[in-house]
Design a protein around this nucleic acid. Structure first.
Lengths: 377, 377
DNA sequence: AGCCCGGCCTACAACGTTGTACGAGCGCCT
DNA sequence: AGGCGCTCGTACAACGTTGTAGGCCGGGCT
């Protein structure tokens, strides 16, 4: 054994990485035996195993992912497609998806659709085949509609709300119930004129429609169906749009003492605009956000928000996706192929929770809630 | 031509996708000719090209990414490794990286290191070879130190601040200057006791050290070197830690009329704690954040913040990475190999800008700045 | 002694693509 | 008419891995 043979795995980039054939030559066995050692196949004698392992360590051999993928027909990579990874909600979702994927030994490729139909179609059509094993897609409404007709060339699970096609797997929360729950919370706090801030009805952001419906239903149930002026519409889920919509509403002399917002970012913009108009959010106007992103707990006043169980969404979405991938693998024959292929159009509804904070304090408190010491839940 | 041959590319998942050999058979040419058509090689007769293209369209052929990658020795995928993609700063960074990568026809694999040394080492050591062409890494300090010694098996560019090894490419902002600039801004607004809120000195988050130094230097230059009590230390960059550190400082009767924070999230927690203690952020205590993430413009008061040019970081980081990838490709010989390989230890410093908002208003204004109408920049 | 069987290892052939080298056909020039 | 060069297309061999089928060898059985 030479000294050179003992140098650590880290080698200059001029030395090409070791392959199976290199290890095989050094250990004096066939490449298949090395492969068997690497993959912990039992059919290798203990002595041989030790010798091969030594060669592997000496050469710093690492399996080459691409060769392996080509042979196995799997990449171990799934794609996560969201409109914009910089949006806090999608970033937090991605965090959970990446973590859940890592637990399963999968890698996550992030795609940004910019809520563009064309981009989403391209992803679903899987222009380059085989790059990813499956796709986790947060679709805009129109694409979701299409998906029923279009056959996906790659396993697919949808994330989010809206009118979804019946034959594609999907995981999300029950947003209508959540919106109704948030609305009832505001009513029970003595709020009487509750506005809804979100995407325009029938717009590209279907999420808003479902939440808006839950809000309208809850108000109708309470005997106070909302007037048209209580719908505050935005074109995108940004602080600027939230503030602008509230500014418009204040200008048009619409009256409200609470706002249910379709996202925390919108809520933040709304609270800012209220303050700018001399109204104290949480006292004069209650505000409820959606998503419960990290900053919601630390605004002033802190933001009441609907918190979807993102971990469960990631977990169930990934589980379904992996099941579909396994089932669609043409190489592996289904062991018990009796069951009629459960992989079409499953719906998983995960939990949500209304996290109550200062921004939705009961009407007319003794002191402005955002100044009450110890007010943090 | 049968009817079936005209059916669109979207096929059932039971039909295996078309390969080059299928197209070749249908067009009556060799697979290499099909390959030449797909890759737009000029050596194909126009007539043949048309015939092959027809066969491609009829079969809905898409190149198989893995086979291609194996042959070419490239995957077209780069990894972006950040401590936590859910943190707004890293999410926004990722957004720019993904966008810049898409422009270059590259895909981005997101890895979360959880600021763990072990995870970062694993990524740099490239356990599986060949999966990604290169790595964009936002390291914790200790790993960065190691990188000089450890030979990376994959092209590598570092993002961020701190004591970085001299022989690895790096892109970031001049945080010391930015901190000094922010400090001078506070001084010029009449602030006298300026605290710094960030990671503990010498801690794992090297970013804090550089910013802290710039702050301390600026104060020293102004003849007011900061006392030890002006260092507010956190263990992680969360709203909770920011609030707790400020609470501690208020309790210990440290005096300050301004806080320079190492991140916007910390600043948000700090502002909340100030408000809870009855102090109005932006009036009684000025607050400056860092990163200028999306929510900074919409808090109340809106947050003055140091905005690094994330787009430039993504752009330059990716450019360097692609250059290194190209240079380290063993198959392609350097055309003019005269220059001595520029791919080691380059430093790129991108611009930053102090975005002044309400939270750093001048001391003792006539009215609380957060109530001034039209106060939004 | 001959046979079978199980343990251990190897040869071969894919997975789908593309660079290299060469060959067939054709027109043009001498 | 024969040789030359050009255009277009093909055969082959990789890239690195792993499933399948089969081979060799020793021990236990008849």
């Amino acid at each position: 054994m030479t000294l050179a043979s003992l140098e650590p795995a880290g080698h200059s980039h001029l030395v090409p990485p070791a392959r199976l054939v290199d290890v095989a030559a050094r250990a004096g066995v066939s490449i298949k035996t090395v492969s068997n050692v690497v993959n912990a196949h039992p059919q290798v004698h203990q002595l041989t195993r030790t010798r091969v392992q030594a060669a592997i360590d000496e050469l710093g051999y690492r399996p080459h992912a691409i060769g392996r993928q080509l042979r196995r027909g799997r990449t171990g990579i799934i794609a996560l497609a969201v409109p914009d990874i910089a949006v806090p909600y999608f970033a937090e979702l991605a965090g959970h998806v990446v973590a859940a994927a890592a637990q399963r030994g999968l890698e996550v490729l992030v795609e940004q659709t910019n809520a563009s139909l064309e981009t989403e179609r391209r992803l679903v059509d899987a222009r380059d085949t085989g790059l990813v094993d499956g796709l986790l897609l947060s679709p805009v409404a129109t694409t979701a509609d299409e998906l029923g007709a279009r056959a996906a060339t790659t396993p697919l699970v949808l994330i989010g709300e809206g009118p979804l096609p019946p034959d594609v797997d999907h995981v999300g929360t029950d947003d209508a119930s959540a919106a109704a729950e948030a609305t009832r919370h505001l009513l029970s706090g003595g709020r009487r004129e509750i506005a809804f801030l979100g995407g325009a009805p029938g717009g590209p952001v279907a999420t808003s429609d479902v939440r808006r419906q839950g809000w309208a239903d809850a108000l109708a149930d309470a005997g106070r169906p909302p007037p048209a002026s209580a719908h505050l519409a935005v074109t995108s889920f940004t602080g600027a749009c939230g503030a602008a919509a509230v500014a418009d509403a204040l200008m048009s002399s619409a009256t409200f003492d609470a706002i249910l917002c379709a996202s925390d970012v919108l809520a933040l913009g709304a609270m800012r605009e209220l303050a700018r108009a001399g109204l104290v959010p949480g006292r004069d106007v209650a505000v409820v956000g959606w998503d419960d992103v990290a900053f919601a707990a630390w605004t002033t006043p802190s933001l009441t928000s609907v918190r979807p169980d993102l971990e469960a969404i990631a977990e169930h979405g990934l589980t379904m996706l992996v099941e579909t991938i396994d089932a669609s693998d043409p190489r592996k024959k289904p062991p018990g192929d009796g069951q009629p292929c459960p992989r079409a159009g499953r719906r998983v509804v995960v939990a949500h929770r209304l996290v109550v904070r200062e921004s939705s304090a009961a009407a007319h408190p003794a002191r402005p809630p955002h100044l009450i010491p110890g007010g943090i839940p």
